[in-house]
Write a protein that binds this DNA or RNA. Sequence first.
DNA 1: CCTTGTTGTAATTGACTGATAACAAGCTCG
DNA 2: CGAGCTTGTTATCAGTCAATTACAACAAGG
Lengths: 179, 179
Amino acid sequence: MASKVRLTAKERGDEVLRAAVQAFAASGYEGTKTDEIARLAGVSQPYVIRLFGTKQQLFLAAIRSVCARIEEIFRAAAAASPELRTLGANYAVLLAERELLLVLLHGFSASGDPVIGDCVREGFGNIYTLVRDLTGATPEETRQFLAEGMLMTVLTAMQVMGPNAIALPWSQELTSTYE
Amino acid sequence: MASKVRLTAKERGDEVLRAAVQAFAASGYEGTKTDEIARLAGVSQPYVIRLFGTKQQLFLAAIRSVCARIEEIFRAAAAASPELRTLGANYAVLLAERELLLVLLHGFSASGDPVIGDCVREGFGNIYTLVRDLTGATPEETRQFLAEGMLMTVLTAMQVMGPNAIALPWSQELTSTYE
DNA sequence: CCTTGTTGTAATTGACTGATAACAAGCTCG
DNA sequence: CGAGCTTGTTATCAGTCAATTACAACAAGG
């Protein structure tokens, strides 16, 4: 098994970070235990701490990671067609990587902590600016675009949207308007 | 001081619930300690538990409470003018009671827990149906309305909107589109 | 080969936290 | 008044969890 393989700290750190994104997406900042992340990554709990210093720093790394990935998706989409409408179709790509929007949501929730708040404000601000610049949309158009994204995010968190969605009358009516 | 006054279990329960809404709004489900709620309400921590059984049940009560209040605000607004546009102006009322949308946000985040998820899905579903019925709007119009609400919610959580907002270039540009 | 730096774990700890139990103080009504 | 129900507290526990320490295995270069 691969668990006996020795990796460089950087490589192992990347694996742990990926595990952290998955875990934080499922349970949030306070709700996720470092031991859970460690098991997901196949390493010991103390090693997770040594690689990132503290649980908080690991969460910050997860936030930065998903923000960078979201920007990457929007950049790729805009390269094909820099229109806000067509960019909207790429929410499907975001929803396919369910953990991206979920980690961001948990970041919003944890913004009461000043350190996390700073990180989230910077990440979300960058996304806003990027979308606006890529599409040339007005602030208002960009706002509406992001608003739809936030609704999809909470619908995903509520598990009424995406794979394994719980089917409810209201949620089916609501999500059917996206087609 | 009022802390020596004996109240009925129902009255004290209401006070504790109000404290819980404040505390959960600030720190979320996992992040809020029952002891914190107890101090806010001016009672002992074990009494908080005895009044509501478990922390989870207290959180459920907080979710139901804010959902009911949100419905109440929309009902009152629609009584004056049952148009979606004018209902939007009443987001100001929701933002004035900052804790309403914040508790709901933390509910979304905690929806991974099946019990909490059920409660949040029901609460949000009721709000969707109510807004649609009150205004006679189409599902798509209602969706756009709620989407704007979700964006405001996360902007509030990030503390770039509302009182004591942290001023950032991007957030000022974004929120100025609401005027 | 052996020394030095790096990757990784086992053991432990100390602080925290939700919940329980036992008890105390008031209210109410016969 | 005093018995019984309700309100509330103090003391405490059992479990959890992030973080530290000490140590082990391994790799690379001289």
